[in-house]
Every structure is written in structure tokens, then in C-alpha cells.
Amino acid sequence: MHWTEYLVPLGQGAWVTVQLTFWSTIFGAILSFAAGIGKLSGFAAIRWLSVSYIEIFRGTSLLVQLFWLYFALPIVGEMAGIDLRFSPVIVGILALSLNIGAYGAEVVRGSIQAVTRAQYEAARALNFTPRQTLFRIALPQAIPEMMPPFDNLAIQNLKDTALVSLITLGDLAFRAEQLRNFTQDSTTIFSLVLIMYFGMALVLTAMMRVLARMVGRWRQTGR
């Protein structure tokens, strides 16, 4: 096989990787905000729930989470009489989102807490409610601070998608392994895969940079 012929199956795999990355980054971001804000909640139950989620998913390996959700969860469901069998795509997105969300939650929490006390005091003096203070004063200042660590997490997430090949999902890493088994042409295939992941990471960073500029527009106006 000529190396250009690899591009079709690898391209198909790359498309799966792109979709996995896209959806798990979106859901991961939602989880990040929910758990990050939840950890700062005045309600002990919400705080406890957020901390448990964050610690469990940061403290266990993504690979084990994937295997657990794919192989163990259906059996647990069966015992409970509920159908918890999901397709590899759903399990992949679920595991990646939960994992990246746990890391992202700490970024969200840290950035909110980094908003100066003076800002919270000004908000209190103007009689904003705690909710208004969070959404109108704290978050708009915290979100631009979150963008560089979020960029890191998004790229981490892109690379982590390779693990879903182990639950038979046909992503880029899975296609590469298939081709290699078939042709034994390891050098060419893995070189191509390396370049493709790198290309996707570059695009992702560029997108995050645009996003960062959008949420931090007020900081860039000149004097």
C-alpha cells in the first residue's frame, strides 16, 4: 500500500477523534462550571457532591473509568434491573467529559476565588444578590483567567481520546492500529498519526485563542 492510501481510513478515524474531542470538551466545560461553582456553594450537600465528583474522577485512571463504564456498568445495571448498556461512542464521550470536567472544575473554582475580595465587597455595597455577584461580577472577570488552563485541558482531552480505541471505538488511534496490523508499516503509519494529532492540537489551540479573545475583550482596549 502506498502511504497516500492510508489517508482514507486514518481520515475516518481522525473525524471520530474530532467529534469525541468536540463533544467531550463541551460537556466537560459544562461539568467544570457546575462542579467548580458547586464546590463554592453555601449548601453543604452541593459542596459535598461536587467535591466527591472531582476527587473520584481526578483520583482514578481514565482507562479504568472507560472500562468500568463500558464493561462493569451494564452488569451493575442488570443487577438493578436497568439497561445501562451504552454504545462505545456514548461511553467514550461520557468518560472523557467526566474526566476533563473534574480537572476543569478546579480551574473554575480557582479562577472565581482569584477575583479580588475588593470586587466582592463593591458588589455587596451595591446590594447585588450572591447570585448576581457570581454571574455578573465574578464570572466575567474569572472566565478570561480560565482560558489558558482550559486550552491545556482541551489539548489533554484531544490526546486522551486515543484511549477510547481500547473499547473498540474507531478513532484515529484505532484505525492506525488496524492498518499497522494489516501492513506492518509502523513507521509511516505512526508518523502520519503523530502529525495528524499535532495538526488537530494546533487547530484546537487557535480556536481557544479566539475564544479567549472574545471573553476577554474588555481587557484589550487601549488606553
Partner: peptide
Amino acid sequence: FQSFNLFPH
């Protein structure tokens, strides 16, 4: 306040 504490955004 001493340090103004305007909302920068």
C-alpha cells in the same frame, strides 16, 4: 473605597 473597586469588565 480607597482602591475604587470599579468593575473592570
